[in-house]
Design a protein around this nucleic acid. Structure first.
Lengths: 226, 226
DNA sequence: ACTAAAGGATGACAAATATCATATTTTAAA
DNA sequence: TTTAAAATATGATATTTGTCATCCTTTAGT
């Protein structure tokens, strides 16, 4: 069982408020495991009995719409916690979580989270701030989906992927999404997304080679995304 | 200065967790006032020095998109609190609030909220649950905006207005929104919204008379909205 | 290495939605 | 009350986006 005290990732989440004793307790009760790319961490509607701390990797939070299509609501990465809302609300999850890469995650049982909650005010405040941040982001995404064109949303999404997940040595986006997944972020048909990527490519704003995407003209994309 | 102890509205928000002493304190520091229809309660980006408790009336929370159009993110009514997220995040507001009807609101200064926060665990938990509920709702709206057609969103919105705000004696929706405001909820051009309302009218699903809207065939609307 | 399946690309076309113009009705202000 | 402004309504048209068909490319499994 690895020690949470030495886990750098903890510094990026609400868990940073925990003291030494609490970290020992945490290490004691957590379950650490790996998740393969494509694996389901939890399904929409699952009853979670704790939260997940992402040690490494990225996953998508999705919701199935009544039209049969999945919408990606949020990408969650290293250092973030999963399932907080469900835990606080004492409700089943509203979104499902699927790994986009191989991941390392730790599961922290509800009882332990609740204990920290009650004894460590800083921890609960941090967690609350996380949820508040998520709410702000969700509102912003909502406005973009309602008011911007697919083209604008694609440009904005490419820039977001660039800024949030960085690039490889060859400048290609580090995070690898299928065309279908990109469509599922911007809320459009896969073919429309592919077509627009082609257009962006022809305009010289991006460069496509296989699954790799390189942003060649971020200024142009930024102008489009506003 | 009216007593918060006797205010029924309190029962519907996080404030229900306050005890008698705390309610006296609250009554002591709050400012109660009226807001006229169309008045701005706060603007997007304002620094709030407290939260608002809605005693009566309905307001819209909006965000201005870069295309110059306002998006209505949420309608907030009697019993709900405004500005919680901003207060917890210690950030300017992400959304503006405008009265849709004449309102009675109370302003509770930040210092007092923070004190309750620190001494009353139930209160902070309630507030946290509110934010979590807002997040869940925002995610759901987001998915609908991304995946459903304008027609479906209009049907869903009419049903929502019916269920959330009720009807008058003549069965017309109690809450009166302009066509422009309805468009701003569903995220479409005003003309498209007007046209679809006409279509719904011709189909016999709704009845329009001036600004009044009567839902004649909720089953049909529900089927459309899914 | 071979093969099936999945993902990606593109054309043709249809449907949904936005935009612009204009008329009518309602509302609010002088 | 009169009048100007705003809101509502509708047609004509352009643009955006989705759907369906087909082909090509990559990936994964045997």
């Amino acid at each position: 069982m690895s020690k949470c005290e030495q886990c750098i990732v903890r510094e990026f989440s609400a868990l940073k408020a925990l003291n030494k004793d609490e970290l020992v307790k945490l290490a004691d009760c957590k379950t650490s495991y790996t998740v393969k790319k494509g694996d389901v961490i939890f399904d929409e509607g699952d009853n979670l009995d704790g939260i997940f701390c992402i040690k490494d990797g990225v996953c998508k939070l999705t919701k199935l719409s009544s039209n049969g299509k999945d919408q990606i609501v949020k990408l969650v990465t290293k250092g973030e916690l999963l399932g907080q809302r469900s835990l606080i609300s004492e409700e089943p999850t509203n979104l499902g979580a699927v790994a986009l890469e191989d991941m390392h995650v730790c599961f922290i049982p509800k009882s332990q989270v609740m204990e920290f909650f009650n004894v460590n005010n800083k921890f609960s405040l941090n967690m609350m701030k996380n949820v508040c941040h998520d709410l702000k982001e969700a509102d912003n995404v909502l406005v973009n989906l309602a008011q911007k064109s697919v083209k604008e949303r694609l440009a904005a999404t490419l820039l977001y992927l660039h800024d949030a997940f960085g690039v490889n040595e060859d400048d290609s986006l580090k995070i690898q999404l299928s065309r279908d997944e990109i469509s599922s972020i911007i809320g459009t048909a896969t073919e429309s997304c592919i077509r627009l990527l082609s257009d962006f490519n022809k305009s010289g704003w991006i460069e496509l080679s296989g699954k790799k995407i390189i942003l060649k003209d971020k200024a142009a994309l930024r102008k489009l995304a506003e």
